[in-house]
Design a binder for these strands. Structure first.
Length: 416
DNA sequence: TGTCCACTGGAACGTACGGCTT
DNA sequence: AAGCCGTACGTTCCAGTGGACA
């Protein structure tokens, strides 16, 4: 008989523990529920816009915008899935193609997704953009289809590549004789319209639908809807759902975030072997999500940004109240020397400090110290322990975390 | 009131690289 | 395969800045 391993024990405990989730998939971002509370108006509006395709006419282009987690993608997928069902029922030649522009990345890949959706084969690469577009038009016309193209995160594409693709797509019907295409553009950025050519804008925005953020009451309804399916009966203690909703409402009414919060809280309860999810679990989940976000951000920094952050860390460790650009640059250069790397210029390091400020790892403020010049006061805005823990696992940075810079004594004598 | 410090941050430019295009 | 192009990353240069200090 084999001895049970550590992992066997983990699995055993999991299987024996009381069940928290009935169906945790319901809490994932990509799950499309059968009911979308507080989006009835948008559903009806989009439904009315796309309905003409059931009678063989082209529908208007639609421009949908709203912040992340306001239900744009879910509503559109929901409505167009239903439309596709109805179209099959009535034998209408409708084809729907969903493309996430940010994930697709290039115009070529977007065209090639559209080609694949209507059954036109194109190589992964190698063709001129114009050629792929021509094949799309030819393929579309020969199949006599009503194509609805959903371009999600369209703002990401425009910012990266300009609006050429949208210009071509909004004019595609001029080149078609037997088919018609309509575009549903989805944008997270409300100012995105400013980037568009007026001709593209007027064509794309034949109809517009706005998704405003959910408030706490609406988030609570959404959450209850999902929670009833996701969790076993009696698992959610009174007040947990309300707390989740309140926390997320305070941060721009993002429904995705609230679902994450509840899922992670449930997982924490599950691991503890608890048979209910309490407010305590929600608080822990919030900390866990924030912790994971910071660790992920730290890991993904470039080497030099890590060095800059490490310099601020070392200053803070030496009890220096605040750092200024010059100090940080001195320590940073010393760290580079240690690893035999050529340091970047102070100008560049100053930009890196700004970037670290923008992503919330540093807190900076431009100050004038009179005769002693104008500079920037820089502080850490995350816990020192988090940096230590994350960088300790890195070969090179692990050494630097415990390094004592020579210039530190001079700095700390002047400013502790 | 003018000087001076220690930068800030904009602009122009160079280089490397990945991916598109022919 | 090779050229082209856009982008990211970085450098160099420099005008501008706010307040202590003489």
């Amino acid at each position: 008989m084999k001895e049970p391993t550590l992992l066997d024990n983990v699995f055993e405990r999991f299987l024996r523990s009381t069940q928290v989730f009935r169906n945790r998939e319901v809490l994932r971002h990509d799950y499309i529920p059968g009911n979308l509370p507080h989006r009835e108006e948008q559903i009806r509006c989009l439904g009315e816009i796309v309905a003409p395709v059931l009678k063989g006419s082209r529908c208007s282009n639609v421009f949908v915008y709203g912040k992340t987690g306001t239900g744009k993608t879910a509503v559109i997928k929901y409505v167009l899935n239903r439309l596709a069902d109805k179209a099959r029922e009535f034998g209408a030649p409708v084809k729907i193609c969903y493309v996430n522009c940010r994930l697709a990345g290039t115009e070529y890949r977007i065209y090639s997704s559209l080609c694949n959706a209507i059954g036109v084969k194109v190589p992964f690469t190698g063709l001129a953009l114009g050629e792929v577009f021509d094949r799309l038009k030819a393929g579309l016309d020969s199949r006599k289809l009503l194509l609805i193209v959903i371009l999600d995160e369209i703002d990401a594409l425009i910012k990266m590549r300009g609006d050429m693709l949208l210009y071509e797509l909004t004019r595609i019907n001029e080149a078609l004789h037997y088919s018609r295409a309509a575009i549903v553009g989805i944008s997270n950025d409300l100012r995105f319209k400013e980037f568009l050519d007026p001709r593209v804008l007027s064509s794309l925005s034949e109809e517009e639908i706005l998704f405003r953020p959910y408030d706490a009451t609406e988030l609570r309804d959404i959450l209850w809807d999902r929670a009833r399916v996701a969790f076993c009966d009696g698992v959610l203690v009174d007040g947990t759902v309300d707390l989740c909703a309140a926390l997320a409402a305070a941060e721009h009414g993002d429904a995705r975030r609230v679902l994450d919060l509840l899922r992670v809280a449930g997982e924490l309860a599950e691991r503890e072997g608890s048979n209910f999810v309490s407010e305590e679990h929600i608080r822990k989940a919030e900390k866990r999500i924030e912790h994971d976000r910071i660790v992920e951000t730290l890991r993904n920094l470039t080497l030099h940004s890590k060095f800059v952050l490490c310099s601020v860390y070392l200053l803070r460790k030496a009890k220096v109240n605040y750092a200024i650009t010059g100090d940080i640059y001195n320590i940073y250069s010393e760290l580079c020397d240690q690893l035999e790397l050529v340091p970047l210029t102070q100008r560049r390091v100053s930009s890196l400090v700004n970037e670290l400020d923008v992503i919330g790892l540093l807190n900076t403020r431009v100050v004038s110290m009179g005769r002693y010049g104008r500079t920037k006061k820089i502080r850490l805005s995350i816990a020192r322990s988090l940096i230590k823990k994350t960088f300790a696992t890195d070969d090179r940075l692990g050494r630097l975390i415990s390094y004592a810079p020579r210039c530190l004594a001079e700095i700390s004598s002047g400013r502790s």
